[in-house]
């Protein structure tokens, strides 16, 4: 089973990189660009075939390592 984990900054946590990206997009002439937030995508291959168990394992991975929950939130997407 393949999983994709999205790690992004929590709402309210300043994202200076996102801001710099927004400024660069404005500089390139893209009109109508508002707030930009950036984050990470982590693709993980799992031997597990049971979706519920895979989700539980991935949640534990996020809490222990993949995200720093002081500043980040995460979303898990499973692909068959």
């Amino acid at each position: 089973m393949k999983a994709r984990v999205f790690v992004t900054l929590k709402n309210g946590v300043l994202d200076p990189q996102g801001k710099a990206i927004a400024n660069a997009l404005h500089g390139l002439g893209f009109a109508g660009v508002g707030d930009v937030r950036q984050g990470k995508v982590i693709d993980i291959e799992l031997a597990e075939r049971d979706e519920a168990r895979a989700r539980a394992t991935l949640k534990e991975m996020c809490e222990k390592l993949l995200a720093n929950t002081v500043i980040e939130k995460y979303e898990i997407e499973l692909q068959a």
Partner: peptide
């Protein structure tokens, strides 16, 4: 130490990058 939860909070990218 913050990542190991021996101290609270987190150290983020410098505000001016």
């Amino acid at each position: 130490l913050t990542e190991a939860h021996l101290l609270p909070g987190a150290l983020m990218r410098n505000a001016n990058l």
